[in-house]
Simulated scan of single mutants.
Amino acid sequence: MLARHEEDADMAQPVPNLHHLELFYHVAKAGGITAAVRSMPYGIQQPAISGQVSQLESELGVRLFQRRPFTLTPAGKELFEFLAPFFGALPAIAERIAGKASKHLRLAAPATVIRDHLPGVLAEIRKAQPDLELSLMDVGQSRIFELLEQEEVDLAVAELEGRAPSGMKTEVLLSLPLVLLLPPGQAMPKGGLKVLAEEAALVRTAEDTAVARLFAKGLNQKGIRWPARIEVNTIDLVHAYVAEGFGVGVSVDAPGVKLPKGVKAVKLAGFPDLAIAGVWRGKLGPLAELVMAGLRRRAKG
């Protein structure tokens, strides 16, 4: 029996060294060994990190990342997604254990959300916590997910198409219908959208934005081709150029948004809605929970 027990123990997969796992987490988060040396909370030299991560790969029997250019392998991505909630939450846990709940909240969102919706929500939170510290980042959709992946923000408000990347949690706050903006003096032709696409210039945000992709999806479903004549980087600029008569614009029917004088919005029936969602990794901290509660109330209002 003892011999059998020893044989089973020899066959068991060895448990990876915790320090090696932590080093790999920092390398994956920073995007490379050199970057990890600069960003880690304690000093360690590049050869030591490289050697210990190589030892981890040897123990696991898999390559975790390509060195040049740096990219995680599928096994590396799986391991990082498992480790990130633990190591990413350690600073906050340490603060709570020490009785020092964090007063600093890091938020990422598009400019319109930061400008029009967050000030009221954050003002309510500041009444309860006057020494609130904030880092607000005006970033686009793809950058938002990158910041969350790297644990650089606590909470994000993002335009959501389908599912968020693996390992992220979401809560849809609003679903906004797409609309066409007609410039002053222009009416919808009798032939509808197909005729309009043949006659009018299109003004929209860049093709890699959520609004542009959803609009293209709706056009494809209707068999309509309508390339953009003018691309801008914000919905506000779409409104401005439509108001000046440059063409027909693509926007969303968003609460509180005032259209320029003379511009008319026409809802796009059959087109997918744009979802606005809170996005985060792991467990929300107390301040982020308060922000989500405020955004829920604002969305319902």
Rank of each mutant, 00 (worst) to 15 (best):
Q52R: 15
V232C: 08
I93K: 04
L173I: 01
A123Y: 01
E159M: 11
L155G: 08
R126C: 11
G218F: 03
Q45T: 06
K261Q: 13
E289V: 12
P119M: 10
Q55F: 01
A101S: 14
Y241P: 01
A210C: 13
L287A: 04
L295I: 04
R96L: 03
G51E: 09
E57T: 06
T112C: 01
K222G: 00
A299Q: 10
A111L: 13
F271G: 12
M1Q: 11
L259M: 04
R126S: 14
K283C: 03
R213P: 06
L178M: 10
R213N: 01
L147S: 05
E57Y: 03
I224A: 01
L72N: 09
S142A: 14
V211L: 14
G140W: 02
L160C: 11
A28W: 02
D116K: 12
L237C: 03
P47A: 09
V157L: 15
R296M: 04
V203F: 05
T205W: 00
Q150D: 00
R126T: 09
R67G: 02
A240F: 04
R96D: 14
I49S: 08
Q13L: 11
L147E: 08
P16H: 09
V15T: 15
A109D: 05
E151R: 13
L196Y: 07
E22F: 06
T170R: 11
D154G: 13
V53C: 04
P16I: 09
G32V: 00
I125F: 02
K103I: 01
E289Y: 00
R225D: 14
G185M: 08
G191A: 08
K77T: 14
A164V: 05
G140I: 00
I276K: 10
L180A: 12
E159F: 14
V179Y: 03
V62H: 05
P16F: 07
K300Y: 00
R163I: 02
E22S: 09
V113M: 09
D273C: 10
R126Y: 02
E244C: 02
I44T: 09
L23R: 10
L287N: 10
L287M: 04
Q141N: 15
D273T: 13
K261S: 12
T71Y: 06
H104D: 07
L64I: 07
M188H: 05
E124L: 12
P47C: 01
R96E: 14
L259Q: 06
Y42Q: 01
R38I: 05
A111W: 04
A243Q: 10
